[in-house]
Write a protein that binds this DNA or RNA. Structure first.
Lengths: 340, 340
DNA sequence: CTGAAAGCGCTAACAC
DNA sequence: GTGTTAGCGCTTTCAG
C-alpha cells in the first residue's frame, strides 16, 4: 500500500485538510509549528500526493497532447521541443503521439486524449487528404485544440498556425530567377495536401510574374520523400525533352534525393544544375551538399502553438485565431548565376 | 457540464453499474437489449468515460514517462519512437520529458512522474557525473524504472539496458589497426561519464593488444559536442608533436567537428588522415562526409526498454535485469589503408 | 441479469 | 487555526 495524505494526517495527528493545505502551500492560516511538523513527515516519508486524485477534483490534467506524424523527422523533433519547453514553463506536461499520418492512429489517440487525459491538443499531420473527420468531435465538443499546417476546408474558426508556403516558394523561385534562370523544373509534394499545392502555386506565381511560361513537362509529381526526389530527377533527366538549368524540389528531402541522381549523372550542383529545396532541415555545416532552401522556424512554431493552446485552455483571448509565419530564403550556395 | 456515466444511466433508465459494464465490455451477464440501448446512447452523445476517474480506481495510469536529454538528438528521437511503438501496442501512452541532462529538471520530472501519473519510467541521461541521487526515491519506492546507458556505482539491481561501449570501441580500433595504422589519436567524451570512459578503455585495449604503446599526448579530452571535436582536432594538429595517421572521435558529432578542422587544414579524409566516430547518426547516404562508425541500435533499444518496463509493471519475470547490446562497426570508407 | 453502496485520494466549502 | 463533510466519476464487491 502506498502512503496517502491520510497516513500523513494520522502520523502527525492533524486532519487531512491540514496536510492538503501544506501540500498546496496554503499555509497562511496554519500554525508555523504544524506546517513544520507536517512538512517534515512528508519529506521523511518521501510522500508525493496522488496527482490523479488531484486532477480528478480540479478537473484539469495539466497535460497537453502532441499529435505528430513522426518524432524522428527533424522538423517535428524541433517542433516538439519548442512545445515542451513552453509547456514546461507553465507546469504542463506533454503526452507524445506518433501517428505516421494514419487516420486510424490519429482517431485512436484523439479519443484517448479527449478522455480528460489532456487539457488540450496540438495537432499536426501531413501527406494526406485534408479531411475534417477526425475533428468533428473536437470541434463539436469545443475541446481546446491548435492545428499546425492543417488546412480544413470550409472551417476557419479552429485555431491554427501556418506558414506562408506560397510566399516562401515564390520568394525562393524569384531568387532563382534573379540568378538568370528561366527554365526551372519543379518536383512537387503530394498534391492532395494543401501545403504542397501552395508551394507549387508559389512557383508558378514567381515564373509568371517574371514573364516565364509554365512548362508542365518539367513539373514532376513527388511525395516529399527522398526516393521521389531521386526518381523525379531521373525522370526529368531521362524522359524530358525540354532543357532546364535549375530545379526547385518542394522539400529538402526530395532535394537530397534529386542531388543523388545529379551526382550519379556526373552533373555538378551548382554549375551544371542549380538546386533548391524547402524546410531547412538542420544538419552540421560541414555536410555536403548544402542546398539553398526556405527556412521553417520549427522550434518557434512549437513554442507559438503551445502558447496559443495555453491561452485557449485558460480562456484568454487570442489575438489571432490563425497565425501565419512568413518565410525566409536561406542561400546556401546551390543556386548560382546562369552561365551564358 | 460534461456528460458522465450517470447521465447515460439516467437517460437509459439503468444503473451506472450497467453502463460501466457496457463501457468495459463485460456484457456476458447483461441482456442484449440493454447493451444495445446503452451502447446506442453512448454513441449518440459521443460519450467518453473519464479516464482520470478510471485510473484513480484501477490504480494504473496506462502511461509511462520517457526521460531523455533532448528529443532533437537523432539518437533519442529514434529511441523514443521505439518506445512509443512498443507502448502503443500495449495500449500505453508516453509522457515526454526533456531534461537537457540537468539534474534539476530530472528531479522535477521524476517527482511529477512518480505522482501516479505514470506506471513506470524509462530514464536516460548523459554528460554528467553518475550520481544516484535522483534515484534514491525510486529505488526505495520500488517504482518501475528502466535505465538506459546509465551506470550507477554500487547499484546493480536496477533494471537497465546498455551497449557494449568498450567492445564497440575496441572493435572499431582493431579495424583501424588492421588497416595498418599505428599512430591513432583519440578525442574522448566527457570522462566523468562511464560510457566515455568505456570507449576510451576500448581504444586502449585494442592498441595494447596490438602491441602499440599508448601515447597520452594524442588523447584529447572532448565532451561529445561538435565544437569539442573541431577544437580537439585543431589542438591535435597545432600543438602536438607526435604524428598520427588516424583519429578515433568517441562520437559522431565530434567526428564531424574534427572533419571540419581537417578540411580547413586542407587534409583529406581518408588519404591524409583516417577518421572514425561512434553512434552511427542516421543521415541520407548522399551526404558527405560519411564517417566509419559503430552502430547504436537506437530504435531497438527503445523497443527493448519499453518491453522490459512493461514486464516490470506487469510483474512478470525479467530474464535479465540488465541487457547489453553488442555493437557493430559500420565501414563507411573514412578509414583506409595506410600508405607507406 | 441488474442495482445499491462503498470507496479510490484528494480538494474545498463550511463549521467550530 | 483546524477539522468535518461532501463529493470528483468511475469500478467493484455483494445482494437480490
Amino acid at each position: 500500500m502506498n502512503t496517502t495524505i491520510k497516513d500523513i494526517a494520522r502520523l502527525c495527528d492533524v486532519s487531512i485538510t491540514t496536510v492538503s493545505r501544506v501540500l498546496n502551500n496554503k499555509t497562511e492560516s496554519i500554525g508555523a509549528q504544524t506546517v513544520k511538523k507536517v512538512q517534515h513527515k512528508i519529506d521523511e516519508l518521501g510522500f508525493r500526493p496522488n496527482l490523479i486524485a488531484r486532477r480528478m477534483i480540479t478537473r484539469q490534467s495539466h497535460t497537453v497532447g502532441l499529435v505528430i506524424p513522426d518524432i524522428r523527422n527533424p522538423f517535428f523533433s524541433e517542433f516538439a521541443r519548442g512545445v515542451e519547453d513552453h509547456m514546461n514553463n507553465q507546469d504542463y506536461g506533454v503526452f507524445l503521439c506518433n501517428t505516421d499520418s494514419s487516420l486510424e492512429k490519429e482517431k485512436q489517440y484523439m479519443t484517448i486524449l479527449q478522455g480528460k487525459l489532456t487539457d488540450g491538443i496540438i495537432f499536426t499531420t501531413q501527406n494526406k487528404l485534408e479531411s475534417s473527420k477526425s475533428f468533428d468531435d473536437f470541434i463539436k465538443n469545443k475541446f481546446p485544440i491548435v492545428l499546425v499546417e492543417r488546412y480544413l476546408e470550409g472551417i476557419d474558426d479552429v485555431p491554427g498556425i501556418y506558414v506562408d508556403n506560397k510566399g516562401g516558394a515564390a520568394d525562393l523561385c524569384r531568387f532563382i530567377i534573379s540568378r538568370g534562370h528561366q527554365d526551372i523544373a519543379c518536383i512537387t509534394g503530394p498534391l492532395q495536401t494543401t501545403n504542397a499545392r501552395l508551394r507549387l502555386e508559389g512557383y508558378k506565381e514567381a515564373l509568371l510574374e517574371a514573364g516565364i511560361k509554365i512548362n508542365e513537362q518539367i513539373i514532376i509529381k513527388g511525395n516529399y520523400r527522398y526516393g521521389s526526389g531521386r526518381d523525379g530527377m531521373k525522370n526529368l533527366l531521362d524522359n524530358n525533352k525540354t532543357k532546364f538549368t535549375a530545379v526547385f524540389a518542394c522539400n529538402d528531402m526530395m532535394a537530397f534525393g534529386a542531388f543523388e541522381t545529379l551526382e550519379k549523372y556526373g552533373l555538378k550542383v551548382p554549375g551544371d544544375i542549380s538546386l533548391a529545396g524547402f524546410d531547412n532541415i538542420p544538419f552540421p555545416e560541414v555536410f555536403r551538399p548544402q542546398i539553398t532552401t526556405v527556412d521553417l522556424p520549427a522550434y518557434n512554431m512549437g513554442e507559438k502553438s503551445a502558447e496559443m493552446l495555453m491561452k485557449i485552455i485558460k480562456k484568454e483571448k487570442l489575438s489571432d485565431i490563425r497565425f501565419q509565419y512568413s518565410l525566409d530564403v536561406v542561400d546556401k550556395g546551390s543556386v548560382d548565376f546562369l552561365k551564358v
